[in-house]
Nucleic acid binder design. Structure first.
Length: 460
RNA sequence: UCCUCAGUAGCUCAAUGGUAGAGCAUUCGGCUGUUAACCGAAGGGUUGUAGGUUCGAGUCCUACCUGAGGAGCCA
């Protein structure tokens, strides 16, 4: 096992003269008359460690096998590098070749590959510079999220992956069953759980249970949608963060969402600078200035009604017409956040007809206390609301939705939370990979998750 | 799921309906404390699949497969 002081990242910071062992995978080898240069990387750093192997230290037949992709351990002395591009390098004394990578067949070459090609070698793309940077950022982002909530006293709750609630309106769900599909019409009362079950589309309803006991809670786990979505922004399996706060209204909800987004960006700017610089260089030169601008900005907050008014007087021709009562289309959201306001926008108080049943009804009788946070380039990154805490109002709403297949008896425990010690509360959901896209400048969501699950794709 | 575009060497891409090419990678040779090293040579192809039009198809037509972009749904 590599010890903390022996990661490539650590070795690059240590002083000349020390005897160390480096382990990792070869990026490339260059030969000179009396010396071989090997770029070694263990995934801890955007920068490789340069290994210098003098003629005779390693038998020629071993040198020949030290090719791109091979795995090595190298013991030697860290020395000041006379060459450009690095301050220290490792002068090899002992080289152990753990596994070669036949250059005739190893698909990762020391040249630029398209992201589409790398996606098809999902078991090897992790060794590329791009995915090294992406997954270090992903790791840091996950850490930032826990830190943000833990520092505020939020309780981390694991909501179930397998769920019986058919989460009305949340789109198609993956069924979970141990019944033999070949056995004809399924009788779910005989199924593993004695009822129809699904992979969760949201932990929110269960998070509300915890918020009614621990006040401030959050979930961070996988979520599944069986929608046949083929876009650069959708996955069938993705990660979602869902905070839920008791004693919180829609305004507190917005404040938290804004602070949350800014914290994540700041944290990654601080801890992953070299990775962001690499990503900026190859994918989006404006990446870092854009991120810094968001941290410094104050998010625009407008109501749905104001948003519609802004769109109507924009004079812009939209493919879909805008009028009060229709949901905002991608083109509308993009216009608001990218062109008109040029910063993150929080849109609140949507018509109740286009939002979920659990959102708190406003006094106007027409809108609910919903909020969507829109980011330039990404669109909706956060969707949330103040929840309906009034038992009778919620019950009435569920009954109104009966014709959509909602069954009041399925929500008995959810309604119970309003009968016993209910209080105003609010929360939101943030797509983890959407945030990753924003932070890394990656334009396809399949390139910010280790193993993307999309329609027709589950190879790795 | 709908619309649009694309599929040619391991990779990135050329090729007016008329002999299928280059760069990188690979192999071999040369040079060199190198930095996506450099110089030279060689090998490498059922042009996504199946049909069709044509004297002749990588190129035109049809269907299918795969990928990408846009839309819907959303996070």
């Amino acid at each position: 096992m590599i010890q903390p002081d022996s990661y490539v990242r650590s070795l690059l910071k240590r002083s000349p003269g020390e005897t160390v062992t480096a382990r990792g995978w070869v990026k490339t080898r260059r030969d000179s008359k009396n010396v071989h240069f090997v770029q070694l990387n263990d995934g801890s750093s955007t920068t490789d460690l340069q290994i210098v192997i003098d003629q005779g230290v390693v038998p020629p037949e071993t040198i020949a096998r030290i090719t791109t992709g091979a795995c090595l351990s190298v013991e030697g002395e860290l020395v000041a590098s006379p060459g450009k591009g690095q301050t220290v390098e490792l002068k090899a004394v002992t080289v152990t070749l753990h596994g070669g990578a036949d250059p005739e067949h190893y698909p990762l070459q020391k040249k630029k590959h398209t992201l589409e090609t790398l996606r098809e070698i999902g078991h090897l793309r992790t060794r590329s510079n791009t995915f090294g940077a992406v997954f270090r950022v992903r790791n840091a982002l996950a850490s930032a999220i826990h830190k943000f909530f833990q520092d505020r006293g939020f309780l981390y709750v694991h909501t179930p992956i397998i769920s019986a609630s058919d989460a009305e309106g949340a789109g198609s769900m993956f069924g979970v069953s141990t019944l033999d599909p070949a056995a004809g019409a399924p009788d779910y009362t005989q199924d593993f759980f004695g009822r129809r079950t699904y992979l969760t589309v949201s932990g929110q309803l269960e998070a509300e249970i915890f918020a009614m006991a621990f006040a401030n809670v959050y979930t961070f786990g996988p979520t599944f949608r069986a929608e046949n979505s083929n876009t650069p922004r959708h996955l069938a399996e993705f990660y979602m963060i869902e905070p839920e706060m008791a004693f919180c209204d829609i305004h507190g909800d917005q404040d938290l969402a804004e602070a949350f987004l800014k914290f994540q960006i700041s944290y990654v700017l601080e801890t992953c600078r070299p990775d962001l610089e690499f990503l900026a260089k190859w994918y989006d030169p404006q990446l870092i200035p854009t991120l810094e601008a968001v941290v410094a900005s104050q998010f625009e907050r407008i109501s749905y009604t104001e948003a519609i008014a802004l769109l109507e007087k924009s004079g812009k021709q939209f493919e879909f017409p805008t009028y009060w009562g229709v949901d905002l289309q991608s083109e509308h959201e993009r216009y608001l956040t990218e062109e008109l306001l040029k910063k993150p926008v929080i849109v609140t108080n949507y018509p109740k007809e286009i939002k979920a049943f659990y959102m708190r009804a406003n006094d106007d009788g027409k809108t609910v206390a919903a909020m969507d946070v829109l980011l330039p380039r990404i669109g909706e990154i956060i969707g949330g609301s103040q929840r309906e805490e009034r038992h009778d109002v919620l019950q009435q709403r569920i009954r109104e939705m009966a014709h959509h297949g909602m069954k009041e008896e399925s929500y008995w425990w959810y309604l119970d939370l309003r009968r016993f010690g209910g209080v105003e509360h609010a929360g939101f959901g943030m797509g983890f990979e959407r945030m990753m896209m924003y932070l890394t400048g990656m334009k396809n969501i399949r390139d910010v998750i280790p193993f993307p699950r999309t329609p027709g794709n589950a190879e790795f």
